[in-house]
């Protein structure tokens, strides 16, 4: 299956059906079931946060969405992740196309040790983007990542000369350059100082106008500030999924209440 088959018809914001539908998803590392029979929607043009203690399966779930776990030999799945009528877990899916459509940014900023501009053009060249379009795409992606003004006069400087926060926004720009529909963010601010974190948070809120965002975070205040929906996971299970405003003020499940209020043992 090619990239063109994925996300061909972009869904409208606020559409009734979710952009993505996770159905009875279980993820195993060998015999260990890291994600247990999870079903939930990912709504389009919204931010969905995943919270829960370390090892609860939230990062595994996120990494399953764009098949990053395929790189782990012992990883295997059950269930479906439906996206535009396609099951993303289907063996026939071209994962390279999938990752163009569903971009990912990790905990540690990981720019290529190359000039800033190369960080964006590298993948564009790989996907054979027309030379005439590249300059415009680079500028748009850097503007969307709120980095353009800071780097426009030094695009040929090494990406490693940027601050941690700038590097992380560059990684977001790198993902945006491929015009994905979904952005997966795995603890994108945990290695950043508060000011850089605030910039990334502002950026996430800005980006949801154009992209669907799923974010794993250990920072519950961050989840409360930036997300529209929150999923609380524990021990591989989805304990509660709901609107962030409801989950943080009046959680339905006792375990969610205990985790949010720090009474978890």
């Amino acid at each position: 299956m090619q990239a063109s088959d994925l996300g061909k018809e972009k869904k409208e914001a606020n559409s009734v059906s979710p952009l993505m539908d996770i159905k009875n998803l279980s993820v195993f590392y060998g015999d260990k079931e890291a994600v247990k029979n999870v079903s939930m929607p990912i709504e389009g043009n919204k931010v969905t946060a995943f919270i829960g203690p370390s090892g609860c399966g939230k990062s595994t779930l996120l990494r399953t969405i764009n098949r990053m776990n395929d790189q782990i030999d012992s990883a295997h799945y059950k269930g479906e992740i439906m996206y535009d009528g396609v099951n993303l877990l289907d063996k026939k899916i071209d994962v390279v196309s999938l990752r163009k459509e569903i971009g990912m940014v990790f905990q540690e900023p990981n720019p290529f040790p190359k000039p800033i501009i190369t960080n964006l053009t590298h993948a564009l060249k790989f996907y054979r983007t027309k030379k005439s379009e590249i300059q415009g795409i680079v500028e748009t992606a850097l503007k969307q990542a709120a980095l353009w003004d800071e780097v426009k006069n030094r695009l040929n400087s090494s990406a490693q000369s940027l601050s941690g926060g700038q590097q992380q926004r560059l990684c977001i720009a790198r993902a945006l350059a491929l015009k994905p529909q979904v952005l997966l963010l795995d603890e994108p601010t945990s290695a950043l100082d508060p000011i850089s974190s605030a910039k990334v948070e502002d950026l996430i809120i800005e980006l949801k106008q154009h992209y669907t965002i799923a974010i794993v975070t250990h920072n519950m205040e961050q989840a409360a500030r930036i997300s529209d929906y929150t999923t609380f996971m524990y021990n591989g299970e989805l304990i509660e999924y709901g609107e962030t405003s409801q989950l943080f003020t009046n959680p339905k499940e006792q375990r969610t209440e205990e985790y949010l209020t720090g009474k978890f043992s």
Binding site: M220, F248, T256, E257, L260, T261
Partner: peptide
């Protein structure tokens, strides 16, 4: 404390 849930209420 930035309380949530019952603590906030």
């Amino acid at each position: 404390q930035q309380p949530v849930a019952t603590d906030l209420r």
